[in-house]
């Protein structure tokens, strides 16, 4: 499962569409599952799927079941097989009688789950998900996330995911791609991206007694000092040494070591425009 990050307008959706074969690359070559996407060969199309959080393929006035039957026919899935898959997937998605209620009467979360079901009916090997949790409440986001993790575990399908919610990415994606100003900025695990963007750890201290600023010399960069509350930034390489020294020098009531929140870091990267 790969998370795909980038600022608004960085080209996430464009890239996804290119990978699906909806947009032709102006130069270079794309290869997905051994196919050139822009040919949109039926064999290729049967192996991929695209879910877009802000667009829907289900028929608005009818229950999702009808759209599912249409998809089964389009993908040439025999009825028996289709029914079995629908049963399996709806079980995973916790969809029941929602499948027989008109789409327009479903909540956004139920609708998204039904969209996922419709997109996965043909058991694609590659899933392109563009903002699948857009606009959902926290609960529904969590449900969708759990489903994707489970689906990925069961089928081993490749999933490429873009999302505005960092929680989606942190929860699901061991590998993260970040595009920035048209360039691939990062490709690898999320924590490596964090250490690249913010090479320092945040250390928060609560002391028993106030200490002067000079007392922290040589312990890293002092961010703030307010009575007993101290915020430090420390190089990871010297973290253990610094922590030991702190515990030695001060009476510490509480101590926390944090990575700076990843969405804040990425947000800063996008705001600054460059590093």
């Amino acid at each position: 499962m790969v998370g795909f990050l980038g600022a608004n307008g960085a080209g996430k959706t464009t890239t996804l569409k290119m990978l699906c074969g909806l947009i032709y690359p102006s130069s270079g070559q794309v290869l997905v599952a051994g196919h050139q996407p822009q040919r949109r060969h039926p064999d290729f199309l049967r192996r991929i799927t695209l879910v877009m959080g802000q667009k829907q393929q289900l028929i608005w006035d009818l229950p999702p079941m009808d759209s599912l039957r249409v998809n089964a026919a389009v993908y040439g899935i025999p009825d028996r097989v289709a029914s079995r898959r629908i049963a399996e997937l709806s079980d995973l998605l916790e969809l029941g009688e929602e499948l027989t209620r008109p789409v327009r009467k479903l909540s956004l979360g139920q609708r998204m789950k039904a969209e996922l079901l419709a997109a996965l009916l043909h058991e694609p090997e590659v899933l392109f998900l563009d903002e699948p949790t857009l606009g959902l409440d926290v609960n529904a986001q969590l449900r969708v996330r759990q489903f994707l993790a489970e689906y990925n575990r069961r089928t081993g399908a490749t999933i490429l995911l873009t999302s505005h919610y960092m929680a989606d990415i942190t929860a699901l994606c061991p590998r993260v791609l970040l595009i920035h100003q048209g360039q691939l900025f990062h490709d690898g695990p999320l924590d490596r991206l964090t250490s690249r963007l913010a090479p320092e750890r945040h250390v928060r201290l609560e002391l028993e007694q106030p200490a002067p600023a000079e007392a922290f010399n040589g312990l890293g960069h002092l961010d703030s000092l307010e009575n007993c509350e101290v915020n430090l930034r420390v190089d990871p390489a010297s973290l253990t040494r610094v922590l030991a020294q702190i515990l030695e020098r001060f009476e510490v009531r509480d101590l926390e070591v944090n990575d700076p929140p990843i969405d804040q870091l990425i947000g800063e990267l996008f705001r600054q425009g460059s590093l």
Binding site: K17, C20, P42, L50, M52, K55, Q56, Q57
Partner: peptide, 10 residues
């Protein structure tokens, strides 16, 4: 933008 879905059907 739902033409995208149509184009992705085999």
């Amino acid at each position: 933008g739902t033409l995208d879905f149509v184009l992705l059907k085999p």
